[in-house]
């Protein structure tokens, strides 16, 4: 068995959740959601743990994790900058916002800065199309974002 490097506390939390539901294959996606919520991402050791608990082969767990874009196997930065590139935002120039963030933080979309502070990601429609283009930083939503706003937004998350 693979040695676990992540905190036992977090594993206990996940185990508690799995024990509270019916541990079947049908619950796999729910459990992965919960695990990502707890750990922030789904590294191999967590996937193996889930496989054992649900009696699902590890290959199946990995197959599901890799299929759905919502699941990530890499840890993200403290601040995840999600730029909406849904159609409404796209036609209102979301691309230039993406480029500006990439320039400002010197990373590409999908990457995390060296100090683990920022991650740039794109997502498809947060449902606030009236505010297009939309940027989310963790839970905060910014609407009608302009290229000039990019620096102002980053400046709010320097802690």
């Amino acid at each position: 068995m693979m040695t676990r490097t992540l905190s036992q506390d977090l594993y206990d939390q996940l185990e508690g959740y799995i024990d509270s539901i019916e541990p079947t294959e049908a619950a796999l996606i729910e459990v992965l959601h919960e695990a990502q919520h707890i750990f922030g991402y789904l590294p191999m050791e967590v996937q193996l743990f889930i496989g054992e608990k649900l009696h699902v082969p590890a290959s199946k767990v990995f197959g599901v994790v890799s299929f759905y874009s919502y699941f990530t196997t890499e840890p993200k930065g403290k601040y995840v900058i999600n730029i909406c590139t849904g159609t409404a935002c796209f036609v209102r120039n979301a691309e230039s916002i993406v480029r500006e963030f990439e320039k400002a933080l010197n990373i590409k979309t999908g990457e995390t800065t060296g100090n683990k502070k920022y991650t740039i990601d794109c997502l498809r429609c947060v449902g606030a199309c009236g505010l297009a283009p939309v940027v989310m930083v963790n839970e905060d939503v910014y609407g009608k974002v302009t290229v000039d706003d990019v620096y102002k937004i980053i400046a709010k998350y320097t802690e």
Binding site: I29, E30, L32, H33, F67, Y68, S69, Y70, F71, L123, R124
Partner: peptide, 8 residues
Amino acid sequence: IKYGAGAF
């Protein structure tokens, strides 16, 4: 309730 996970 069942949750999707970002697959169109």
